[in-house]
Design a protein around this nucleic acid. Structure first.
Lengths: 83, 83
DNA sequence: TGTGTTGTTTGATTGTTATCGAACTGTCGT
DNA sequence: ACGACAGTTCGATAACAATCAAACAACACA
């Protein structure tokens, strides 16, 4: 999780996805100056970390931020460092 | 900050420091199976990120977790992702 | 003043990761 | 069935990060 959040580009992607309830993959490809392959790679990482979920609709793919996972992470961080 | 928190060893060091109000550098060196150089490197990163502060006392050095910085980070994360 | 201890810096090595382009897979509309 | 579009996967490359060992600097004490 921390690893997934450590790349600025990935966080930017995550933030973009967070601006809407659901965010189309294709829009990420147009709005970020990176190749499709790279987007796909980052999405895979975010999925693996449980930070987003995806939904397929025909040939399109939509992403959604898992806000509870993020909340769980921040809580864990606070707990571990006893703030 | 996120970068600083993305390395497991560094988080472990941070946690160790967090177990006491102040933690001597030398104890980190004895309790973690890494060289002095590596410890020094990680401390530099944690300092740079504002996650710890250090205090010199003669030839010894002590570290202290900056809990408010961590709180600020988690808050920022929550805010940015509108949880 | 010298010796041991503490921590920093440096250079080399090694592993990881972000990125691209290209090849590939799957889905849609015609 | 075919051509266009959406994503994935792969191979290569380049940048970065963790680590060590060794050289170094600073301090303490005898």
């Amino acid at each position: 999780m921390a690893k997934a959040l450590s790349d600025p580009r990935r966080v930017a992607l995550l933030e973009a996805i967070g601006t809407a309830d659901e965010y189309p993959c294709q829009r990420l490809c147009t709005e970020f100056p990176v190749s499709k392959g790279t987007i796909s790679h980052h999405m895979k990482e975010l999925l693996r970390a449980g930070l987003i979920r995806s939904r397929q609709e025909g040939q399109y793919k939509f992403f959604k931020v898992c806000r509870d996972t993020i909340a769980a992470y921040t809580n864990e961080l606070m707990r571990r460092l006893a703030v």
